[in-house]
Design a binder for these strands. Structure first.
Lengths: 183, 183
DNA sequence: TATAATTTTCAGTAATTTCTGAAAATTCAG
DNA sequence: CTGAATTTTCAGAAATTACTGAAAATTATA
C-alpha cells in the first residue's frame, strides 16, 4: 500500500502542523490520511502507510476517538476495526476549536478567579491583582464569545465570517436602532 | 527580590500555558512577570525572580521583542536595559492571535494551494484533492475572517464579542434588508 | 470454553525542545 | 583607544514529549 506524492506530502504536513493545532504528529497524520482516503482503513493499514508502529496507531486512534473525530466500521467476515473520519470539515474545525478553548482558556480563567478572590496584602499585590483582573475580563469575554460561536450553525457562522469587517457597519446600525428605541 | 505567593502562582501558570499559546515556558513567565510588575525590570532581576539563567532571559526577551510585546527603558546612570510590557492587554491578545494565525494557517494554506494546482492522476487522487479543496476553502475563510477581525478596533471587537450569538439575529435582519433592496 | 486474532498498555528508548554556562560580541565611560 | 559592564550566541546538558516492541488484555470464532 502506498500514497501518491501529493497525498503523502499532505499527510506529512498535517503531522507537522498537528503540534501547532493541539495534537501530536501521528494523530495529525492519521486524521489527514483518513480524510483523503475514501475507504475506511484498519490500524495495520494506517501503520503501514504512515510507517509508524501498530501501538502508536492504537494510541492515535484512541485520541481521535476521544475527540469524536473518527467513526468505527466493521467489514463482514473481518474482525479488524476500520476507521473513517466522522462529520464534515466544519465539524472537525468546531471540535478542534472547542477542544482548544477548553485547554487554553478554562484553566487560566479558574486560576485567575481564585486569585481575584484573595485580598491583596501589599501595594504591589494590589497592582498585580488589577492586571490579573484585566486579563481575566478579557479572557472571560473571549471564552463566552467562543462558546456562543460554537452554538451557531455552520451556515450562520459562514455568513458571519464572510461578512468579515463589514460586521462593524452592522454594529453601527444596531447601536443607532438601540438608541432610537430607548429614546 | 521575591514575589508574593499569588504573583508567583500566576507567573508559573502563565509559563505552563505558554506552550499552549505558542511560546515557551520562560517566555510566558517573563511576560507574566512584566505584566504584574509595575516598574520595569532588568534581565538580572528577571532571572533572579524566575530562577532561570541569564542567557535564557536574554533569549526570552529577544522573542518578546520580536513580537513587539515589550518596551525598552533606560534608567539614568545605569547601563542595564530595563523592560516593561508594551500596550494594553488587548494589544497583547491581538498580537498572540495574529502570530498564531500566521503560524497555524499560512503554511497549510500555501501547501494546499500548491496541491490544488496539480492535475489528479488517479481516481483516489481526485478524491483526495476534493477533500483538500474543502479544507482549503474552510481555512481560507477562517484566515480572511481572522484578518478582518484584526483590523477592527478594540471597541468594535468588544461589542461584537458581547453580542455573542445575538449576532445571528442581526444577520437575519441583514438578509431581509438585502432581499428588499434587491427586489 | 479453548485458542487464535486483534487491540491496548506501558516501560524503556528515541526524538525534540528548552535551558545553561562559558565564551564571544557589543556597548560605553573614562 | 582601553577595559569593564552588559548582552548575545551557541554547543552541549537537561527536561519534556513521542514512539516502539513486548507482553497483557480483550474479543470473537469454532
Amino acid at each position: 500500500m502506498t500514497l501518491s506524492n501529493s497525498s503523502e506530502a499532505f499527510v506529512l504536513h498535517f503531522g507537522e502542523m498537528g503540534s501547532r493545532w493541539g495534537f501530536n504528529r501521528t494523530v495529525g497524520q492519521i486524521y489527514a490520511l483518513l480524510v483523503i482516503h475514501e475507504e475506511p482503513l484498519n490500524a495495520d493499514q494506517i501503520g503501514e502507510l504512515l510507517r509508524v508502529s501498530r501501538s502508536n496507531v492504537s494510541m492515535g486512534i484512541k485520541e481521535l476517538q476521544s475527540w469524536r473525530l473518527v467513526t468505527l466500521h466493521h467489514i463482514p467476515g473481518d474482525r479488524k476495526d476500520y476507521f473513517s473520519v466522522s462529520g464534515s470539515m466544519w465539524d472537525m474545525a468546531r471540535t478542534v476549536f472547542e477542544e482548544r478553548r477548553k485547554r487554553e482558556l478554562d484553566p487560566t480563567l479558574s486560576l485567575l478567579r481564585s486569585h481575584l478572590l484573595e485580598a491583596p496584602e501589599t501595594q504591589s499585590d494590589a497592582y498585580a491583582q488589577e492586571k490579573m483582573r484585566e486579563i481575566h475580563d478579557l479572557l472571560e469575554l473571549l471564552n463566552q464569545w467562543a462558546n456562543s460561536l460554537n452554538t451557531l450553525n455552520p451556515e450562520t457562522l459562514q455568513s458571519l465570517m464572510k461578512l468579515g469587517s463589514g460586521v462593524s457597519k452592522l454594529l453601527e446600525f444596531k447601536s443607532k436602532v438601540g438608541r432610537k428605541e430607548s429614546e
